[in-house]
Amino acid sequence: MLSQQSTPVVRATLPAVGAAIGDIAELFYTKLFDAHPELLRDLFNRGNQANGEQKQALAGSIAAFAGMLLEHPDTRPDAMLGRIAHKHASLGITADQYKIVHKHLFAAIVEVLGDAVTPEVAEAWDEVYWLMANALIAIESGLYQQAGTADGEIWQQMTIVERRQETPDIVSLELRRADGRPCGAFRPGQYVSVQVELPDGAHQIRQYSLSAAPGRPEWRITVKHVREEVRPDGEVSSWLHQNAEAGDVLTVSAPFGDLTLAEDDGPLLLASAGIGSTPMLAMLNHLAATGSTRPVTVLHADRTPADHAHRAELRQLVRELPNAALHLWYEESSDQEPGASAGRADIGAVELPEGVTAYLCGPLPFMRAVRGDLLRRGVPAQDVHYEVFGPDLWLGQQ
């Protein structure tokens, strides 16, 4: 918790820091990459830097953390910290890198806020930073231990054993460890990072959900082609679509991610849109493989049936579960899926059992709409879990 002397200072200055945090984040990344260009080349997502999403996520997380310290001084916001820590661990972030961030972040704060940063203010916000950083370092160290690796040593070489074109814009890749060892366990809903060397020599990293059940001899990732001419963060998916073939070797991380299936008997709602179906497929594969009798409501929305990756597999998995129901929406109606609804997903049209735990994955507007409808129907906020593909611009705003 914040010390007694820092609490009133942070409370008094949070509005000013919050109002300037976007400018602070912008300047921070400029200073960081000027001093350490290798971080932009080989660690940070260059696309998210170009479109500003990473700057927004950093600003939102710092402001949210400070606000939570003030509102709930006796508790640590572990849900928010855990989400960040899993992403950091999937990149191989280590404790020494927090010192680099601290140096350039505080230089940016002083430059943006000027004389307002008195020694007292600097000391209070320094305390906020290290409370957050040390909490993340501890959580990340625990994640590395769970993965059976030293801090930051997450990478392994994996061979593509099969490439399958699921839709015109989506491929799935089956992976095995190149050294012949077992792929290792993961929890349904987790993701791995894939690092590729691009034509300019940069080593860029992106996360992809494991879309099949744990316990199989292979891991499977499903990759949507994010076109670079549309979004600047598509350079890795473009490379994989254009280059990754059976027999090739990829650099892949250990599994991480906090959107994981709770091991109990309660009813579930798995709601997804587009490529957000991938963690739900792992959950359904796991439920089917373990003979689960849990009530499961599956909701998926997509543009058309032809754009819906693993569509036949989804239907088969729902059929294998004795208490599962499937609801499909497509923006364009089609005879390919009799019984599917046309238009956007409407959770209000779906019957939900008492005590349901919801898992959401898809574009932010979809998840906001579904989450809002669930809350209005009385589902407690703590029972609604989500995964964001990319920087989490929703942190602290739910």
Rank of each mutant, 00 (worst) to 15 (best):
V350R: 10
L39H: 10
D126E: 13
S193W: 06
Q316F: 00
D42M: 05
V196K: 02
T222V: 03
G18A: 12
A89M: 07
H385V: 06
L287F: 05
L299D: 04
E354I: 00
I139V: 14
C361A: 12
P8K: 09
V110N: 12
I21F: 08
P279Y: 02
G348L: 05
E123Y: 00
V196S: 01
R41D: 14
P338T: 05
A349H: 10
L40A: 15
R231M: 09
V298Q: 05
E245G: 11
E351N: 12
P232C: 09
L284H: 04
L269R: 02
R377M: 00
R187F: 02
E331M: 09
D42F: 04
G142V: 03
V112S: 11
S292R: 06
E351S: 15
D307S: 13
T297D: 03
K31P: 06
V296P: 02
G274K: 00
E337D: 15
S90F: 04
E229D: 14
A185M: 05
M283V: 12
K224H: 03
L2N: 10
F366R: 04
G362P: 06
S341I: 02
L269N: 05
V121K: 00
R76D: 03
T222L: 01
L393M: 13
L259F: 12
I170R: 01
G378S: 11
P267R: 01
T222H: 01
L175H: 01
L374F: 07
F106Q: 08
G234Y: 07
A345S: 14
Q204I: 09
M283R: 08
P363K: 02
W125Y: 13
P8Y: 10
Y359W: 10
M80S: 12
D34W: 02
D23E: 15
V230I: 14
P15K: 05
V296H: 05
M68V: 00
G343L: 06
V318P: 10
A254D: 06
A212M: 07
V121D: 02
S172P: 04
Y191A: 02
D373I: 00
P217C: 04
R220F: 01
L143H: 09
R181W: 03
A107F: 06
A324L: 04
L40W: 00
P365H: 08
A63K: 12
A246K: 11
E197V: 13
S209P: 06
G355S: 08
A133K: 09
M283F: 11
D307L: 06
G184T: 08
N243R: 15
S272M: 04
L250H: 01
M1F: 09
P73M: 11
S3I: 01
K99E: 15
Q49W: 05
A19F: 04
G180F: 03
G201N: 11
L270G: 04
